[in-house]
Computed example of a mutant assay.
Amino acid sequence: MLSAEECYKIFDQSILDYHKKDHVDTPINNPYPQGSFEALLYVKNWIDTVQWHLEDIIRKPDINPVEGLQIKRRIDKSNQDRTDTVERIDDFFLEEFKNVVPKAEARMNSETPAWLLDRMSILMLKIYHMKEQTERKDASAEHLATCNAKLAVLMEQKNDMRLAYNELIEDIGNGYRKFKVYRQMKMYNDPSLNPMLYAQQKGN
């Protein structure tokens, strides 16, 4: 199983690859073997990176309403893809630790390893874009100072999450902590659960 630092490197690679063209329609070119854990982490961060920029676009004050709705629909799909990918990452952890017998005193961890990686992926995006802000030539000294202070906090958080992830994986592997995967039960994308959707189906 990869260490936190190795996971960070994959996230960082995805972010750098995206920004070579810096366009939300850039096709993904995953450098890792299909079906591998590394490839899945790369996909996860690519989804996050594209969505980050979609969230920027949709906040343009003069955005065309039709374009805005299209982007909103795209963000909705991206959120579902993100959740599905996190659950696929958790499948790797379930397989990795399937033979581990938790100790009697093992504590339940409310967050699965994959959802911690989700936070780590987004944190790397925050760091990348906050660093961009510290390098702006058109910004005031006050803005640069504020962003540098925020970047320092993000870097501290990165280290804390690195420790938390590595300790979690070690503890699970040694039977001191355990986790359960509760599949996300998102209702708004399900035509049988969203009343706006199934009411429309009945009307048809």
Rank of each mutant, 00 (worst) to 15 (best):
K180I: 07
A39L: 02
K126T: 08
V100Q: 11
N189T: 12
P65L: 00
T26Q: 15
L16A: 15
L94M: 11
K202W: 09
F97E: 01
R74D: 08
K126A: 09
N166M: 02
N159C: 06
K158E: 09
F37I: 05
Y182L: 11
L54T: 06
H53S: 07
A39T: 01
I127E: 03
G35K: 13
D90Y: 03
K44N: 09
K20D: 14
N159P: 02
V50N: 05
R119K: 15
L94H: 03
D25N: 14
A145T: 08
S3E: 10
E67P: 00
K131S: 05
L193S: 09
R82W: 10
V86T: 06
I47L: 14
E132T: 02
L144V: 14
R82F: 14
N99S: 15
G203F: 13
S192E: 12
E156F: 05
L117E: 01
E6D: 14
E135T: 04
K9H: 13
V66L: 11
K21A: 10
K131V: 01
R88L: 11
K126N: 10
K44V: 01
A106L: 09
I89Q: 00
D81R: 12
H19N: 15
K137F: 06
A114E: 07
M155F: 05
N29G: 09
D190P: 04
A145R: 12
E132R: 12
Q133R: 10
L151R: 00
Q201D: 06
H143A: 12
P31E: 05
E87Q: 04
N45G: 01
L2M: 15
F179N: 00
M124W: 11
R59M: 12
V43S: 08
Q13C: 03
D91V: 06
Q80S: 12
M124V: 02
D22I: 08
R82V: 06
D17Y: 03
I57Y: 09
A164E: 11
D171K: 14
A145P: 01
D171S: 15
P191E: 13
A152G: 04
L193W: 07
L2E: 12
F97C: 01
Q201L: 14
S192C: 02
S110D: 15
F97A: 02
L94G: 04
D171I: 02
M185W: 06
K77H: 13
Y198Q: 04
H143L: 05
Q200S: 11
M187Y: 13
R119L: 10
D17P: 04
V50K: 13
W46G: 02
F11A: 06
E38G: 06
K158T: 03
